[in-house]
Amino acid sequence: MKIAVGSDHGGFALKEAVKKHLEAKGIEVEDFGCYSTESVDYAVYGAKVAHCVADGKADYGVLVCSTGIGISMAANKVKGIRAALCSDTHAAEMTRRHNNANVLCLGGLVTEEKTALEIVDTFLKFDFEGGRHQRRIDQIADIENGRL
């Protein structure tokens, strides 16, 4: 499994903790930045990770900005990306099982590290259920393609 990670300056510390956590589990991680707490624009890093996942170069992505909101908005502009901002493990489980999310977004200044790592583990643990949920994923794709 390969995970693409990225953040802005507000999510840098949590991104680094997530990266270390994943690598300790033997998961390959590609870090798209940022690489410090110097102010940067979240959209750039959201796009880099989202394109990596959409192009099939990583299985999933994890993005972090101060709240997780802006970076999730940016990632969701990339065709084929279903980025979900999660603040608890239940949301992480359900977004994988029902929404087939492929990018997890976190708020670096609003989510404690311990909780964030639990959310990451939960997100990676569950698979998409398909079934009736596939119809909804297809509708999201129809929106992306201007058919809905």
Rank of each mutant, 00 (worst) to 15 (best):
M1H: 07
V5F: 01
G6L: 10
S7N: 09
S7D: 02
G11E: 01
G11T: 02
F12P: 03
A13P: 05
L14E: 00
K15R: 12
K20E: 15
K20C: 01
H21L: 02
G26L: 07
E28R: 09
D31M: 03
F32M: 14
G33A: 09
E38K: 13
S39F: 03
V40E: 09
D41H: 06
Y42L: 07
Y42S: 03
V44A: 09
G46A: 08
A47W: 06
A47P: 00
A50L: 00
V53H: 00
V53T: 04
A54R: 02
D55S: 12
K57C: 01
D59C: 01
Y60F: 14
L63V: 10
L63F: 03
L63T: 01
S66W: 10
T67N: 10
G68C: 10
I71W: 02
S72G: 12
A74N: 07
K77F: 04
K79H: 14
K79Q: 07
A84D: 04
C86A: 15
S87R: 11
T89R: 10
E93S: 12
E93A: 14
R96G: 04
R97W: 06
A101D: 02
V103W: 00
C105G: 07
G108H: 03
T111K: 06
E113M: 08
A116M: 04
L117E: 01
K125T: 15
F126D: 04
E129G: 03
G131D: 15
G131M: 10
I140R: 08
I140H: 10
A141C: 08
A141M: 14
D142T: 09
D142L: 14
N145W: 09
L148W: 14
